Simulated assay, not measured.
Amino acid sequence: MFEKLPFSIREQIERLQSRGLLIAPEDEAAHYLSHISYYRLGEYWYSMQSDKVNHIFKENSRFKDVIALYQFDGELKILLFDIIEKIEISLRTKLIYHLSHEYNPWWFQNFDLFTDSKALVKTLASLEGELERTKETTIKNHFKNHKDDLRFPPAWKSLEQTSFGSLSKLYGNLKNTVKSKDTIAKEYGVVNHTFLPSWLQSIAQIRNYCAHHSRIWNKNLPGNPKLLPNPPFNWVEDVPKQNEKLYVHLCIMKYLLDRIQLGNNFSNRLNALFVKYPNVDPNALGMKSNWYDENLWK
């Protein structure tokens, strides 16, 4: 039976100090703990502990470094959310354009185009809920003006309302015989449909972490994106061996973004974060210290 009782902020600080965490008056620990929960911050000081059973901190572990890690993680999520937005809008545009031309504006309701019917039912149910909740005038007017049409609004209306997760599932669920599936992959420099679905699924998962303010620093991510053996565009020579770390996902985002936004400043913005927070070890994200010298990131 779980019997732990809550601690006051003063008790939280005293407990951290008794375990070896250095907390100076200027660290404003009480202020931070009143706005960021002890449990949430614990995800950032966990790696600073030498004894993770008794929660004893390594020598010279400092509260201000915990806050720096937390702030770095927050700014990294803001950066990635911005990058993923561009990928999401691009994917949405390509799905709508290519599939609507290859088939018709209601291709996403055509079960003959998809491998997993049950998965499509779930995706369409999610889309239906989004359309029912939306306040967008274009959707409301469509239902008002086309009461006798029981189909969803056409792709260029419906899919503007759906999530990146649903878009990635639609793409991944398309049969490999659908020409647009390869066309979209080629336009992203991903050669064919074999690789892109796992890329999109991993990015969608990271987007969810960012949207729900979950930690992504030093996190083992689910999924196992398939990496191109011979990418047609700039990639990394030092290919990440740890697919569960964030770096491989950052590389995938940069590779896609280079096709979407020429001359983007993702590299500079990411590097600026490490300059701003020098106590953050890039290796915690699966990165080497010289990552910035790779052709992909130059």
Rank of each mutant, 00 (worst) to 15 (best):
Q71E: 14
V121K: 15
W291P: 00
H31N: 08
K298I: 11
T93Y: 08
P154Y: 03
L76I: 03
L150G: 12
E75D: 13
L285Y: 09
V239A: 11
K186M: 13
H101E: 13
T194C: 02
F108I: 02
N224P: 05
Y292G: 01
H55D: 10
T137D: 14
T162D: 09
S117N: 10
Q161L: 07
L196D: 01
E85R: 14
T123M: 04
N176L: 13
K254S: 03
A284R: 15
H146V: 00
G129L: 07
S198N: 08
I87Y: 02
N268Q: 14
K94D: 10
N230P: 01
I9S: 06
S37I: 09
D116E: 12
E130V: 03
I206H: 00
F152Y: 11
P222G: 08
K254R: 13
D73P: 05
A272D: 15
A155W: 05
L250C: 09
G20F: 04
R40L: 02
F7I: 02
L296H: 09
S267I: 00
Y70G: 08
E244F: 13
I23V: 11
Y39W: 12
Y70T: 06
Q17W: 04
I260N: 04
L120V: 02
L167V: 06
T137V: 11
E75V: 00
N141Q: 14
W107G: 03
T183Q: 12
I87L: 15
G286T: 04
W297T: 07
V66N: 09
E128N: 15
S47A: 13
D65N: 14
H213T: 12
Y32S: 02
K157D: 03
N295E: 15
G189M: 09
N104G: 04
T115A: 11
R40A: 05
L273W: 03
R133G: 10
L22V: 13
G223Q: 10
F111P: 00
H31M: 08
L76Y: 03
N218A: 13
D112L: 13
K169S: 09
L91Y: 01
P6Y: 11
Q109V: 02
L131C: 03
I78F: 04
D116Q: 07
T183V: 14
L127K: 00
N230F: 12
N208E: 09
T177W: 03
S100E: 02
L41V: 07
R19M: 11
F164W: 04
C251S: 11
H31E: 08
V178G: 04
T183K: 11
E88D: 14
F72K: 04
P229V: 07
W156A: 00
Q71P: 00
Y70P: 08
T115C: 08
F266V: 03
S34H: 10
Y32H: 13
A284C: 11
L80I: 10
C210D: 06
D148Y: 09
K64T: 13
D112W: 03
L159D: 01
Q261S: 13
P282D: 06
L221V: 02
I216Q: 10
K179V: 14
P231H: 06
Q205K: 12
K122T: 10
N173C: 08
L80W: 00
L256P: 01
D258E: 12
Y209R: 14
H101K: 12
T93S: 15
T183E: 12
E136P: 00
A29L: 06
L170K: 07
H55Q: 15
I9M: 02
A29W: 03
Q109K: 05
D65Q: 09
N192A: 06
G172P: 05
S163K: 11
V190R: 06
V53C: 05
G42P: 10
